[in-house]
Amino acid sequence: MTSEQQTIVKNGLWTNNVALVQLLGLCPLLAVTSSLINGLGLGLATLMTLVLSNSFVSIIRHWTRPEVRIPIFVLIIASIVTAIELAMNAWFHELFLVLGIFIPLIVTNCSIIARAEAFASRNSVLDSALDGFMMGLGFLLVLVLLGGLRELIGQGTLFANAHLMFGSAAEGLEFTLIKDYPGFLLAILPPGAFIGLGLLIAIKNSIEKHKSKQTIRVSPPVKPAEVAVQ
């Protein structure tokens, strides 16, 4: 893996995370993360769309013109999302019944067009696909984290309804933290999404602050004498 590709990976997962740093796609993010499995569902659907749309945009990047590139990207993304929805409905119907409701939501996710414009229209197909995958993965991780957090606080469970996504084998996966938990409705309702996302962003920022402090401490202190000379 070249250092450039490493940067792509790091950008997607951490430095330039779609949900935590770019704050794109908040509408679907806030709407569906009421449980971990829901978050996973939207995350997977977005990931798939990002990889495909980034690859397509990158393939045609030499044939567009700057004046009309945005409408062309919109056309391509809309076609791809519709095609994915139809194909899933036909050939992966079980999965579609679970993820299907999330796919039209992806249309409202501006991170797709943002990646097309900012990255895929300037880079090779392989790099663009990798960028789509990593951005999607970064988004997915935040969705799962936020969904899990809200589910745990709101309902006291984790992996509820996992069988909807993984079949009946996952029935026993549901994990109840506290028996007879009375529930904390705020976490499940939309305000809980805002508060939860705010918390996640705060945690990320404090980790970064902590890291930069450490680097300062490691670097040798400037000698007072030298300062005086300058």
């Binding site: 567009t64 009309v68 409408p71 062309i72 391509i76 076609s79 791809i80 519709t82 095609a83 139809l86």
Partner: peptide
């Protein structure tokens, strides 16, 4: 023409899959 071409391609793709 370019924009039209992509509109046609997009519509054709969706139409074909539909």
């Amino acid at each position: 023409l370019l924009l039209m071409l992509f509109a046609v391609i997009g519509a054709a793709l969706v139409g074909f899959i539909y």
